[in-house]
Design a protein around this nucleic acid. Structure first.
Lengths: 337, 337
DNA sequence: GTGAAAGCGCTAACAC
DNA sequence: GTGTTAGCGCTTTCAC
């Protein structure tokens, strides 16, 4: 290995052996130093190593240490759609916990169950220490291979049945209940819930159930419109049917809320005069729309932090109970209903 | 290693040795198979390995192969703020290129130059094959260590001087020029440009320069308000000063645009009657605001794809010219001016 | 066309 | 308190 006399030297190619030689100790000692095993290391060697490592700009090779220690200090985060307003806040919440710990985040997108499986397998082969997954499928058997792989897994946003991994979501049922109650008290006679296919995710079902329950209690009919691709043209039919009643639309997620808002604006349907609009997740700009939107806002940052903390616990080898942790969502009553 | 008779077996702990033994070949042959070196492999062993690997659910250990081959198939992506509307679309664009290639993305956030340095060093120690960086600092010397590390680096969104790494941005100067021209043709007599500190990023300067040039040509004074933290209270002063003139505000990025819009709404200042508003990056909801916003919209997905492609070229060992690639932005003229 | 063997850079017993 | 040593699972010459 080259010696350097000329100042700032390449952050490069030095190995633990070079450091050991330079410091006049064995590489075991260097390794101990690097891993913070100072229990019975003399202050002198400690100090010496500190300066030598700094001088050499030595950077340990993670791959080698991971190979040996079986710890990569990397976790995988798999979301359904990276550009969905959900993902960034979630990832930021996760990063707030992991980054100070020196744990890196591998993000990947699983747009279909098959693609999700691919990226998960890929993540496993990278030996990630753990995985945070917004699952595409509600069925545990689709994730059998994850259980078999014996890697810590946390779910976020969606549940699977049976619940074989711990999960963090918001309090969907409760929050939707409160919103529904508040909205229906304004005297609406018809409700349309626009959602992606309920069967694919149990929280969707919960949000719909909440409306049904409140609707029943207050004697207001609740209609369901399941759409697959944020294409909301079908709401024309419903609008026609209820045109002489005071009606309100609930869009069950942020994308649908936006799609619906755009559709209504495009068709020059006034909100809330002709039809009321409320929904889930305005990603900080519901207040800017015309009119400002009444919404349930999930605390994504908190969800991310919580799921990351629980994953870190699992990775540390401590058990946690396999259950759903619910993070309270905020409800913003504004002018769109 | 256990043999399995009972169907789906743990995706686990099999090594290349196990596969070799099971297939009755040497691990060298298995390795060749895994890496697609079929040049002179008999069809029979090829077929045999295929089935054995599938049967065993063997998954190669990336850390081991990375240690030996010096290729991790991971790239680092460092952005200033993960929750900024910029990041998700960019990352998605990058993922569109890398995911099919089996290249994983390590995302990290660099909120300050110091933190950015930390995460970059961390990334280097993970032996990422390359780095995409939205640089916090405009000075190349802050990234000397990256050059020394001899790792492929691509910049995105912002330049550094001298330009020692290739970079992908939008056509800031040109797009802003077109917008400015179109806006001023509406007869505005005063312009306020709200931006984060210009000195920190040359594209900010470009956007301001564009306004200055157009303003000069059309004889309209252009004022600059530099704010540090999306706190736009100071625009009160300017508004008072120009209250009897037809005035327009240009917010130089999406966050500032939102902050400004919120501030104006909060102070019940009508747009565009009292003051016009336009800006950069509405992240798909500028059309929903009241009134719909006139903006320059960067093609973030395209930027992400482009920067990822160029990085892949660099990683493949091919040279690219160190220059700035500009992706045309869209200009949306709407009702806010 | 395939195998043997030498490491990649690190960790963790186990010595002393 | 520190050194010796045996691998972790893979890739890649170099033989044959």
């Amino acid at each position: 290995m080259k010696t350097d006399e000329m100042g700032a030297l390449p952050l490069a190619n030095y190995t633990i052996n070079d450091v050991a030689k330079q410091a006049g100790v064995s590489k075991a000692t260097v390794s101990r130093y690097l891993n913070g095993h100072f229990e019975r290391m003399s202050e002198t060697t400690k100090a010496r190593l500190k300066t030598v490592i700094a001088d050499m700009h030595y950077v340990p090779n993670h791959n080698a240490s991971a190979l040996k220690s079986k710890r990569t200090h990397q976790i995988g985060v798999v979301v359904g759609d990276l550009a969905n307003g959900y993902a960034p806040y979630l990832v930021k919440g996760i990063a707030a916990i992991t980054q100070p710990l020196g744990v890196q985040i591998l993000v990947a997108e699983g747009k279909t169950v098959a693609q999700e499986r691919d990226v998960l397998l890929n993540l496993l082969s990278q030996n990630v220490d753990g995985i945070i997954l917004q699952p595409r499928s509600p069925h545990a058997f689709d994730y059998q291979f994850l259980q078999d792989a014996n890697v810590p897994v946390m779910l976020v946003d969606r549940l699977i049945a049976p619940l074989v991994f711990a999960c963090v979501t918001s309090n969907d049922r409760q929050a939707t209940n409160i919103l529904a109650q508040a909205v229906l008290e304004k005297g609406y006679q018809q409700v349309l819930v626009i959602a992606n296919p309920l069967a694919e995710a149990s929280v969707r079902q919960e949000r719909f159930d909440a409306w049904q329950n409140v609707g029943q209690k207050m004697n207001v009919p609740v209609t369901l419109l399941e759409v697959d691709d944020d294409e909301v043209d079908d709401l024309q039919t419903w609008l026609t049917r209820v045109h002489d009643q005071k009606a309100v639309i609930f869009a069950a997620n942020g994308n649908l809320l936006l799609a619906t808002l755009k559709w209504l604006q495009h068709h020059h349907i006034t909100i809330p005069e002709t039809v009321g609009l409320c929904g889930y997740d305005d990603w900080h700009f519901g207040g800017l729309a015309a009119p400002a939107l009444t919404v349930v806002n999930q605390d994504l940052h908190q969800i991310g932090e919580t799921v990351a903390k629980q994953l870190m616990t699992l990775i540390a080898g401590d058990d946690i109970t396999i259950c759903r942790t619910e993070i309270p969502a905020d409800i913003h009553m504004r002018q769109s209903v």
